[in-house]
Design a protein around this nucleic acid. Structure first.
Lengths: 211, 211
DNA sequence: ATAAATTTACTATACTGGCCAGTATAGCAT
DNA sequence: ATGCTATACTGGCCAGTATAGTAAATTTAT
């Protein structure tokens, strides 16, 4: 995780955490917009308002900085939508709320750029993909499974295989549209489109898994 | 499409089409595996068994060569699966056949690499995405819409909005799994997994859109 | 026809100019 | 004693060009 973990008992002047954050922020921004090869260490230093050597004193090389930046980016993603399900709740509404939240998240400008970056470095950096998927989609998927299981117990849905159903739900939400956005064939969808798509998906899903 | 279209009435020695193809093949291979930045023109020339200047005589610069290579790659993709639907056919079987063909195509090593490449260059090359999507997924999507419309007319399915249903069908097939493969968090699925997934999706789809 | 002249493709190699990762040096700040 | 800045430098990679010569086709002349 951290590079020079000599946090305690270090003699001399301590490293400025603010600089570290500035470097990380600059790196996130630049890597996401310019890609790995398109981002020079000089540019990061300039953007962070810091000398190049300071960058190297915090992060031993470009790869290390890149990994740290992506890690940091993955963490503050994905606001866990509420997967709670009270007895009085209408399943359709809960599902639609989840659908809208999911699409809003996954079709955000930032998520798209992050995903593109991961695709680009996928062959070289498999652990980064695991990191991203674990921090984001995996948790969402897990929450959905729990919800479906509970809905089945409460007799609201008829779901034999929650993981499969969850996968199908999110799959329908993304459709081919998400791929098109990802490869740049289309702009990110607006709020209106997101809502109607979620609506239609919930309809189909309930026809398939409702009682 | 072609760069020097002085095919007819050209004096002197004509360009060797075999060399052109060799260059294009080498470029396809290298760009797909090494990416745009990771592929040098020297490497292309070497791989094609041709001098660097010959590469430049066929393709004026790296961008041009890249575009031509991706175009060539897009063309021989996507074997249009049969979207025919006879009156005696069982819808479930036709759908499953389509599902398996779709997943086999989209989860092939080559498609994945092409998609990754498109993601990487998406911000700079939007027309390439359109090219790819038009040559591949779009046609498949269109075929599926026709099929669903016909099935509805024949009274086999209850589909009000064929485009939406088609999108949902392929979306369910891909699910999150495809994204995981794309970002390198998972290997490409085997034949068995593809078949079971198609099977499950068809079941859900028929529950949602069957009579 | 046959040969010469011409035009263009191609090879091999070397070079230019730019970009950039990473290092070195020297000095100031804490 | 260490963080930090500023600047300059090294060494490598690479797109694209230059040069000089060879090979294959077309055109023109004989």
């Amino acid at each position: 995780m951290s590079e020079q973990t000599a946090v305690t008992a270090s003699r001399g002047r301590p490293k400025d955490p603010a600089k570290r954050r500035a470097i990380l922020d600059a790196a996130k921004e630049l890597f996401l917009t310019q890609g790995f090869a398109g981002t020079s260490m000089d540019a990061v230093a300039a953007e962070a308002g810091v000398s190049k050597l300071t960058v190297y004193s915090h992060f031993s090389d470009k790869e290390t900085l890149f990994t740290a930046a992506i890690e940091a980016k993955c963490e503050n993603q994905m606001p866990l939508p509420m997967f709670a399900l009270g007895e009085g709740d209408k399943v359709a509404e809960v599902l639609k709320r989840i659908g809208v939240a999911f699409l809003t998240m996954i079709d955000s400008e930032d998520s798209i750029r992050l995903l593109r970056l991961l695709c680009a470095v996928a062959p070289r950096e498999p652990q980064m993909a695991r990191l991203f998927f674990g921090a984001g989609p995996q948790r969402t998927l897990g929450g959905m499974e729990q919800l479906l299981r509970r809905a089945a117990e409460l007799g609201m849905l008829r779901v034999e295989d929650p993981p499969v159903a969850a996968e199908q739900f999110f799959g329908m939400l993304m459709g081919c549209r998400h791929m098109r956005v990802l490869i740049g064939d289309s702009e990110v969808p607006g709020e209106g489109e997101i809502r109607t798509r979620a609506e239609l998906v919930v309809q189909s899903f309930l026809r398939a898994y409702g009682k």
